[in-house]
């Protein structure tokens, strides 16, 4: 099961287009869109009334906040599986579990009176059950020639809590922490990045908070928006998890 999320920011707004079909063409017209966020130690889950046609749900920026996210489900699945116990996010259905291509929404961001940029976006349920760290380079998707560089870091955690943790900018060659930023889970964290942090050796590293890092650059009213791959994407052999665990251990040594 996949979740979908948007971005709210002073410079830009976002829209989410959720398909009612899989990449193979299989449709499900019985599902609704639900919006969820943590509130008073429970998951608040509501059916979203939004624009739709026979193929898509269109979620407007007014329905998007940095602490909410969306998913497809039937009323029956919500009633039966949650059974009035909203203490943990549940894996309600398999319609969005597709392979080889993941089931994705289109997350598009717009600059006020300017350009737009998008990517096919999803947050897999499996990720919500894990506590881990992400490692991602700053210079591949940020741009020192841009007027503004931002990183958005989205976490969805299965428990309805918002706890703080840290995201570090680390020079992995000099083994030095350059900046430490407080982030929280079940939230879309926004980080403004100065040019001094956009260098070949500098990576972001989150401690005890998995998530998706999204990179936004802006210049002359144009905008670029993309996410980075997790490190295990770059190694195909069975040793990938061991190799990445070793690298993350090294970085953990730098930040502690």
């Amino acid at each position: 099961m996949n979740f979908f999320f948007g971005i709210k920011n002073t410079d830009l707004f976002s829209k989410i287009t959720i398909p009612k079909f899989q990449n193979t063409g299989l449709h499900n017209n019985h599902y609704n869109v639900y919006v969820s966020k943590p509130e008073n130690g429970k998951w608040l889950i509501k059916k979203l009334i939004c624009k739709e046609n026979k193929n898509f749900f269109f979620i407007d920026h007014e329905d998007i906040s940095n602490d909410n996210f969306f998913f497809l489900a039937s009323e029956n699945e919500i009633t039966k599986k949650y059974a009035n116990n909203f203490s943990k996010l549940l894996n309600l259905n398999t319609f969005t579990d597709t392979f080889p291509s993941a089931f994705r929404s289109n997350l598009r961001i717009y600059l006020n009176e300017g350009g737009f940029s998008s990517y096919q976006s999803e947050y897999p349920y499996e990720m919500t059950n894990k506590i881990g760290s992400i490692l991602s380079p700053t210079s591949t998707l940020l741009n020192v020639d841009a007027e503004k560089n931002l990183i958005f870091f989205k976490n969805i955690f299965h428990l309805p809590v918002q706890e703080n943790s840290f995201l570090y900018f680390v020079d992995i060659v000099k083994k030095k922490v350059l900046e430490k930023i407080q982030i929280k889970n079940n939230f879309l964290n926004e980080i403004k990045v100065s040019n001094s942090l956009i260098k070949s050796n500098i990576f972001i590293f989150s401690q005890k908070c998995l998530g998706i890092p999204l990179y936004v650059t802006m210049k002359d009213k144009h905008i670029s928006f993309e996410h980075t791959h997790p490190p295990h994407h770059y190694i195909l052999s069975d040793d990938k998890f061991k190799i990445i665990a070793n690298l993350k251990y090294e970085i953990n040594q730098i930040i502690t």
């Binding site: 940029s117 591949t140 993309e226 195909l236």
Partner: peptide, 22 residues
């Protein structure tokens, strides 16, 4: 091991800010 190069390509149209894809 087997490694994969799956990095990022940006497309600049009329010299504008490049739009990147992985």
């Amino acid at each position: 091991s087997i490694i994969r190069n799956s990095c990022y390509t940006g497309y600049s149209y009329k010299e504008s800010l490049p739009s990147f894809v992985h």
